[in-house]
Design a protein around this nucleic acid. Sequence first.
DNA 1: TTTAAAATCCCAATATTTAGGGATTTTTTA
DNA 2: TAAAAAATCCCTAAATATTGGGATTTTAAA
Lengths: 192, 192
Amino acid sequence: MKQTILIATPSYLLQKGLASIIQDIAESELIFINDINEVNHYLEGNNTNCVIIDQCLIENKEQRALLFQLKDKNYYIDLVSDEKYLPAANKFDAAIKYDDPKEKVLPILEKLINKYDKPEDTASLLSKREKDVLKLVALGYTNKQIAEKLFISTHTVISHRKNITSKLGIKTVSGLTVYAVLNNLIPKDHIQ
Amino acid sequence: MKQTILIATPSYLLQKGLASIIQDIAESELIFINDINEVNHYLEGNNTNCVIIDQCLIENKEQRALLFQLKDKNYYIDLVSDEKYLPAANKFDAAIKYDDPKEKVLPILEKLINKYDKPEDTASLLSKREKDVLKLVALGYTNKQIAEKLFISTHTVISHRKNITSKLGIKTVSGLTVYAVLNNLIPKDHIQ
DNA sequence: TTTAAAATCCCAATATTTAGGGATTTTTTA
DNA sequence: TAAAAAATCCCTAAATATTGGGATTTTAAA
């Protein structure tokens, strides 16, 4: 099952940046809110796995206390504009600075995703071989070409495609292509 | 023709955020650099349309002077962490703050894209009708279904597809689907 | 060690697409 | 107003994909 991540920051650049990075790692449901009171309200009424919150939204102690009421249920990531706003001791599980480079940001988000990523997600619906076939379908190869590439007969390719179709409920090449692109099975680049 | 945008910031979040927003507006070539000297070196040896540079990378006057040597050729966007770093008078064409909301960021980038987007880009390669057909192909319809939807014969659909194929040089359904998705001809949602 | 899933292969009939020719009628545009 | 481009329609043969049946062998899990 997809995990839900709440992202609370007024910055559009950071919203889109976090979204882009997170979706590259694994498909997740992202909620964007930029009002601290709405964040607390949302957390009370909905299940989330992680809260990424911009330090600049927290104005007082009451808000802060409310925020951490559900500490046990969620993973909290602090988002700060500058090192100086990093409190020495705090309740956050991790912190990301606005200007952190790739090497600092990626591990934190990857850890978060792996922590909550369930094994039975979309990708594992398909067997290894089915994914191989799907990839090549999405890359525009014919069944015959796929058979040659995988050293199997076209019959087998067709069988795999039948299984893919029934598992995914997607029967058209274009639908499978979109699925493959969205599930990062193929690079988004040009296709022959 | 695609435009080239140089993005200079150490922040991975901002890099990915800018990339995500810009690519949503129009396909562009993005160059990421996070060293001011490399930026200047790159600008001398390559053609760009726009430079988005993080204020924090500019350490002294010499670097600043070098940066604006090609002022006439490029559109410059300033990226600042805080209002206080915004110089009263400067050579930048626009400025974006780290924590700007969508309403401030989008117009600036849209203006930039439209400024340089050539009329003869990918979308206008195809005629109106060809785009109609391409859309439906990418949505997984068969030629027969497309014919019914557009109130034309399947022969016409096939003719349009032949023209699309020769104009785009893409002959597979999956390739056309990726093209359609990348060119925002269809919503990225689920397809039957 | 059974059982179930995965991976492999086969056939035949039908549906669909592709590639190679055309041709005619509207619209645009120079 | 000519000429060019766009949109429409037609044909046939060959190539591919889809559907709806099977079956066998490996591999993994209970």
